Computed example of a mutant assay.
Amino acid sequence: MTDYVLVAGAWLGAWAWDDVVPELRAAGHGAHALTLSGLAEKQGVPAGQQTHVQDIVGEVERLGLRDVVLVGHSYSGIPVGQAAERIGDRLARVVFVDAGVPAHGESMASAWWQGQAAFEAALAGNDGYWAPLTAPECEGQGLTEEQIARFVGGSTPHPGASLTEPAVLERSLGELPATYVKCLLDGDEPSDDVAELLKSEHWRLVEMDTGHWPMFSQPRELALVLMQDL
């Protein structure tokens, strides 16, 4: 049995994996969806990026898990990538689902496509939080109207400190066993930093013909992808 620890991206909590968890458990695996500090039912808890890293490491330790597949979606690839390094021989594999990957000394804000200043200005204009997406901003990602309504209705503001604090890595992510899941409706090619990591013999690329939130749009297919490397 493999134990999966599932961490959704910005604005989302453990609830985002509700359609994926039963698929993994039906196949005989452990599935543990995690809400990061400051989000969903943990709103109001102060949270920087290292808080989120510790949330993930702490969950693995609290549950006494071994042979762990850490799954990070979107923003959560950044803390998940750091946690994967820190759990040592408990790690079986890390899976980045259309995710950012951490780079030592860098943050999500520092890699933002419009520049760090623009990103930080947006946070400052929303009391230090990243505002959730609206329904029109979710279009074109393979989601039904019902799925968009579920996503928007469940989203909560994302704590800005987790997006601006730098990542801390002791070694290259290329040394970790990893799968990168590229969702093609969100762009045909991985980002340059991911493409470089995919040159590692320890990394593999999987493509899904859906949008940025496959846990909503294709939960069964995503579960099958997560189980491919076992």
Score class of each variant (00 low, 15 high):
residue 114 Q to S: 13
residue 123 L to N: 06
residue 228 Q to A: 15
residue 126 N to R: 07
residue 93 R to M: 14
residue 138 C to V: 02
residue 124 A to W: 05
residue 207 E to C: 13
residue 196 E to D: 15
residue 67 D to H: 13
residue 133 L to N: 09
residue 202 H to R: 15
residue 142 G to S: 12
residue 150 R to F: 13
residue 215 M to P: 02
residue 54 Q to W: 09
residue 149 A to M: 02
residue 205 L to Y: 09
residue 222 L to M: 09
residue 199 K to S: 14
residue 202 H to L: 06
residue 151 F to Y: 14
residue 17 W to C: 01
residue 152 V to P: 09
residue 162 S to I: 01
residue 93 R to I: 09
residue 102 P to V: 00
residue 225 V to P: 04
residue 84 A to P: 03
residue 67 D to F: 07
residue 5 V to P: 04
residue 197 L to F: 02
residue 19 D to I: 00
residue 23 E to F: 06
residue 137 E to I: 04
residue 132 P to Q: 04
residue 18 D to G: 01
residue 53 V to T: 03
residue 201 E to P: 07
residue 105 G to M: 05
residue 171 R to T: 08
residue 165 E to M: 02
residue 58 G to E: 06
residue 214 P to F: 01
residue 67 D to K: 10
residue 33 A to M: 04
residue 211 G to K: 07
residue 10 A to W: 00
residue 96 F to R: 10
residue 23 E to M: 08
residue 11 W to F: 15
residue 70 L to R: 01
residue 190 P to C: 11
residue 198 L to F: 12
residue 49 Q to Y: 13
residue 38 G to I: 01
residue 94 V to W: 02
residue 55 D to C: 04
residue 192 D to C: 08
residue 153 G to F: 12
residue 50 Q to H: 14
residue 64 G to R: 06
residue 111 A to R: 15
residue 195 A to N: 11
residue 227 M to I: 08
residue 209 D to P: 03
residue 214 P to I: 00
residue 55 D to E: 08
residue 215 M to H: 14
residue 148 I to S: 02
residue 211 G to M: 12
residue 12 L to Q: 14
residue 141 Q to R: 11
residue 30 G to A: 14
residue 88 G to H: 07
residue 194 V to L: 10
residue 177 P to S: 05
residue 56 I to Y: 04
residue 133 L to I: 03
residue 163 L to E: 05
residue 89 D to Y: 08
residue 203 W to L: 12
residue 116 Q to H: 07
residue 94 V to H: 04
residue 116 Q to I: 03
residue 230 L to K: 11
residue 91 L to R: 00
residue 180 Y to A: 04
residue 206 V to T: 12
residue 213 W to F: 15
residue 191 S to K: 12
residue 102 P to D: 03
residue 221 E to K: 13
residue 3 D to L: 07
residue 42 K to D: 13
residue 78 I to P: 04
residue 199 K to C: 12
residue 59 E to G: 02
residue 94 V to G: 06
residue 102 P to W: 00
residue 198 L to T: 09
residue 171 R to S: 15
residue 49 Q to D: 10
residue 125 G to W: 03
residue 69 V to L: 05
residue 225 V to R: 03
residue 26 A to L: 08
residue 80 V to P: 10
residue 170 E to V: 01
residue 95 V to L: 08
residue 22 P to W: 06
residue 183 C to V: 00
residue 159 P to K: 05
residue 86 R to D: 00
residue 202 H to N: 15
residue 109 A to G: 11
residue 178 A to G: 13
residue 83 A to E: 01
residue 157 P to V: 09
residue 86 R to M: 04
residue 137 E to K: 14
residue 34 L to Y: 04
residue 212 H to N: 07
residue 73 H to A: 07
residue 112 W to P: 01
residue 151 F to K: 01
residue 21 V to L: 02
residue 18 D to F: 11
residue 84 A to L: 06
residue 208 M to R: 03
residue 213 W to S: 14
residue 14 A to S: 11
residue 168 V to P: 01
residue 89 D to N: 13
residue 22 P to V: 03
residue 79 P to C: 04
residue 220 R to V: 07
residue 50 Q to P: 09
residue 116 Q to L: 02
residue 213 W to Q: 11
residue 167 A to K: 01
residue 58 G to D: 09
